[in-house]
Deep mutational scan, measured.
Amino acid sequence: QGDIVVALYPYDGIHPDDLSFKKGEKMKVLEEHGEWWKAKSLLTKKEGFIPSNYVAKLN
Rank of each mutant, 00 (worst) to 15 (best):
Q1T: 15
Q1C: 15
G2Y: 13
G2R: 09
D3F: 15
D3W: 15
I4C: 08
I4G: 02
I4M: 07
I4H: 05
V5K: 01
V6K: 05
V6F: 08
V6E: 07
A7H: 01
A7E: 02
A7N: 00
A7G: 08
A7R: 00
A7W: 00
L8P: 00
L8D: 02
L8S: 03
Y9R: 13
Y9K: 12
Y9V: 07
Y9H: 09
Y9M: 11
P10A: 14
P10G: 11
P10V: 06
P10N: 15
Y11S: 03
Y11I: 02
Y11Q: 02
D12K: 14
G13M: 06
G13N: 04
G13D: 02
G13W: 03
G13V: 04
G13F: 02
G13Y: 02
I14D: 08
I14N: 10
I14G: 09
I14V: 14
I14T: 12
H15T: 09
H15G: 13
P16F: 08
P16S: 09
P16N: 07
D17R: 14
D17C: 14
D17S: 12
D17A: 10
D18M: 12
D18K: 08
D18Y: 13
L19Y: 03
L19D: 00
L19T: 02
L19F: 04
L19Q: 00
L19E: 01
S20N: 06
S20P: 09
S20K: 06
F21K: 01
F21P: 00
F21C: 03
F21V: 05
F21H: 00
K22Q: 12
K22Y: 06
K23R: 10
K23C: 12
K23I: 09
K23H: 06
K23Q: 11
G24F: 06
G24Q: 03
E25R: 01
K26N: 07
K26C: 15
K26P: 07
K26M: 15
K26F: 15
M27A: 01
K28Y: 14
K28P: 00
K28F: 13
K28E: 14
K28V: 15
V29C: 04
V29M: 06
V29L: 15
V29G: 01
V29D: 01
L30D: 03
L30G: 02
E31V: 08
E31D: 09
E31Y: 09
E31I: 08
E31N: 07
E32C: 14
E32P: 08
H33W: 11
H33M: 10
H33K: 11
G34Y: 05
G34A: 06
G34D: 07
G34W: 04
G34I: 04
G34C: 09
G34M: 05
E35K: 13
E35Y: 15
E35S: 12
E35Q: 13
E35N: 13
E35R: 11
W36S: 06
W36D: 03
W36P: 04
W36H: 07
W37E: 03
W37Q: 06
W37N: 04
W37K: 13
K38L: 15
K38C: 12
K38Y: 15
K38T: 07
K38W: 15
A39K: 01
A39L: 06
A39N: 01
K40D: 02
K40P: 01
K40I: 14
S41T: 03
S41H: 10
S41F: 00
L42D: 04
L43R: 12
L43V: 11
L43T: 11
L43W: 14
L43G: 06
L43N: 07
L43K: 10
T44H: 03
T44E: 03
T44K: 02
T44F: 02
K45L: 15
K45E: 14
K46N: 09
K46C: 11
K46F: 08
K46D: 08
E47G: 04
E47K: 07
E47Y: 07
E47A: 07
E47R: 06
G48Q: 00
G48V: 00
G48S: 00
G48C: 02
G48E: 00
G48A: 01
F49K: 08
F49N: 10
F49M: 13
F49H: 05
F49V: 07
I50R: 00
I50S: 00
I50E: 01
I50Y: 01
I50L: 05
P51Q: 04
P51V: 01
P51M: 05
P51R: 05
P51C: 06
S52F: 08
S52C: 12
S52W: 08
S52T: 06
N53A: 13
N53H: 13
N53D: 11
N53K: 12
N53W: 15
Y54P: 02
Y54K: 08
Y54L: 13
Y54A: 09
V55L: 04
V55Y: 03
A56E: 13
A56C: 15
A56G: 08
K57I: 11
L58F: 10
L58A: 08
L58H: 07
L58E: 08
L58K: 05
L58C: 13
L58P: 07
L58S: 07
L58Y: 10
N59A: 12
N59P: 12
N59E: 14
N59Y: 11
N59V: 13
